[in-house]
C-alpha cells in the first residue's frame, strides 16, 4: 500500500462522522429518482384500429398531383357537423393519422391506437388535403359494411382488442361531405 492510499484511508477515518451525511444524501437522491417516471401502457390493455385503404381503380385513377397533398384517415366518435373536421379533432372527438399515407398507390395500410376504449367510432373516413391549408380537406372514402355505398358504419372498440377494416376509395364516385 503506497503513501497515497494511506492518506485516503486516513481521510476517511478522520471524516467518518460525515459519511452518514453523504450516504443519507445519496440515498435521498436515489429514492427520489426511483419511481421510474413515465411508462407506456401495457400492450395487453391497448386497442388499435388498423386498416387498408383500397383505391378501386388503381394508380391511374388518382387526381392530378397538384390537388392532392396528403391522404389521412379520421375516425369520429360522434357524427361530424358543419364546424368541420378540425373542430372535432381539436375537441378530442376524433382520431386521425398525423402524417400523410402514401400517395399514388393501389392500396395502403394505416393504424392508430384508440386510447379511450370502450368507445363507438361512428364515422371513419379517408380524407384528402387538396391545398397547402391544413383545413382544406374533403372526404374520399368511408368505412361501410352496409348495402348502401355512402352510408357510414359504426364500429365498437373494446379494450385490449385490435380491429382491421377496409375503406374503398373511388375517385369517380366520392361520398357526400358531411360538413
Amino acid at each position: 500500500m503506497n503513501f497515497k492510499s494511506y492518506r485516503i484511508i486516513d481521510n476517511l477515518m478522520r471524516n467518518d462522522k460525515y459519511l452518514p451525511i453523504t450516504i443519507a444524501l445519496l440515498l435521498t437522491f436515489c429514492l427520489l429518482s426511483c419511481d421510474g417516471g413515465l411508462a407506456p401502457k401495457p400492450e395487453s390493455e391497448k386497442s388499435y384500429l388498423n386498416g387498408t385503404l383500397r383505391f378501386v381503380n388503381g394508380i391511374a385513377d388518382w387526381p392530378h398531383e397538384d390537388s392532392i397533398l396528403a391522404v389521412r384517415v379520421v375516425a369520429f366518435k360522434k357524427f361530424p357537423d358543419s364546424t368541420g373536421i378540425f373542430a372535432d379533432i381539436l375537441s378530442g372527438n376524433a382520431y386521425f393519422t398525423l402524417a400523410s399515407l402514401p400517395l399514388f398507390v393501389d392500396s395502403s395500410r394505416f393504424a392508430f391506437e384508440i386510447t379511450d376504449s370502450p368507445t363507438d367510432l361512428v364515422y371513419i373516413a379517408a380524407i384528402q388535403q387538396f391545398d397547402t391549408l391544413i383545413t382544406s380537406q374533403r372526404v374520399i372514402g368511408l368505412y361501410n359494411i352496409s348495402d348502401e355505398k355512402h352510408k357510414p358504419s359504426t364500429i365498437r372498440i373494446e379494450p385490449g382488442k385490435h380491429y382491421d377494416i377496409t375503406i374503398d376509395i373511388d375517385f369517380k364516385d366520392l361520398p357526400p361531405m358531411p360538413f
Binding site: L38, P40, K41, K46, T97, L98, A99, S100, L101, A111, E113
Partner: peptide, 13 residues
C-alpha cells in the same frame, strides 16, 4: 409518436 412509442418519431416521418 405517442407515449407508447416515446422513442420514435411520428409514423410515416
Amino acid at each position: 409518436n405517442s407515449l407508447d412509442s416515446a422513442t420514435r418519431p411520428p409514423t410515416d416521418t
